[in-house]
Design a protein around this nucleic acid. Structure first.
Lengths: 132, 132
DNA sequence: CCGTATCCTCAGTGATACTG
DNA sequence: CAGTATCACTGAGGATACGG
């Protein structure tokens, strides 16, 4: 803040209105979907509305409890909708809101990156561990 | 899995080789930079190499310990380099590797989204809490 | 089918003090 | 300057059982 690098106006692939690091709300994003399951729920719902049990089966390893918690959080933050149909047996459908549309692309970019970087990272980790 | 929606081949803004949700390595990405500080460190280093204390001052609220931990993890995974200059007093510089180049864009996209979505989300949250 | 209620554990984090 | 060592805490997350 005080004297942080007088000539860092160029941000590396920075257009004109590049945000400076200090007002980067990345932590807020991570607070929303940075937990263990929320992102996966969103990805899954990207394929269209899902019912509770459908999600539970689709997302490997998630517990009933954590699915509920994640869904409630996402719903509370306006990222998904919860629709209850007055049927018997009960039927509840979850779907993403329009808010999510705009992150789908960057999120998929991250996934793509992960597929490419995965092996490289594994190698780096192995190298790091075998030093010392 | 069993009967999950036979016609979800269209992924919403999906090109030709859209990855299906089940092999989406988003969790891996989050395991890398999904913690409280790593992403911010990367963002900060996006503005060029930084020294330890420089980072400590730039990243509001981070403790010496967590900065160390985050840096070690990032280094271990090959996302940043650590260069020690044999000076007195000690001087260590951290910089991002080329691996990081390709996520900078999506990461900034997420930040931009957050700036736009922030108020909407706050409103949604308020509405949700004031129901019931 | 769609959850809630409890209990419990442990990894991530922070505070503080010390060091090459 | 650039860390490391210790301790203590918190809350995210899992297991299990129950309920509308």
């Amino acid at each position: 803040m005080s004297q942080r690098n007088t000539v860092v106006t160029d941000q590396l692939t920075a257009p004109a209105d590049a945000p400076s690091p200090e007002d980067c709300p990345l932590p807020e994003v991570l607070a929303l979907i940075g937990d263990k399951w929320s992102a996966q729920v969103l990805v899954q719902l990207g394929g269209g509305p899902h019912r509770f049990t459908q999600l539970e089966r689709a997302i490997e390893g998630i517990s009933r409890r954590m699915l509920t918690v994640s869904l409630r959080n996402l719903e509370r933050n306006g990222l998904i909708t919860r629709t209850v149909y007055p049927d018997a047996p009960p039927r509840v459908e979850y779907a993403t809101t329009s808010l999510v549309e705009d992150i789908r692309a960057p999120l998929e970019a991250l996934s793509t990156w992960a597929r490419h970087a995965g092996p490289v990272i594994a190698a780096a980790r192995h190298a790091y561990d075998n030093r010392r």
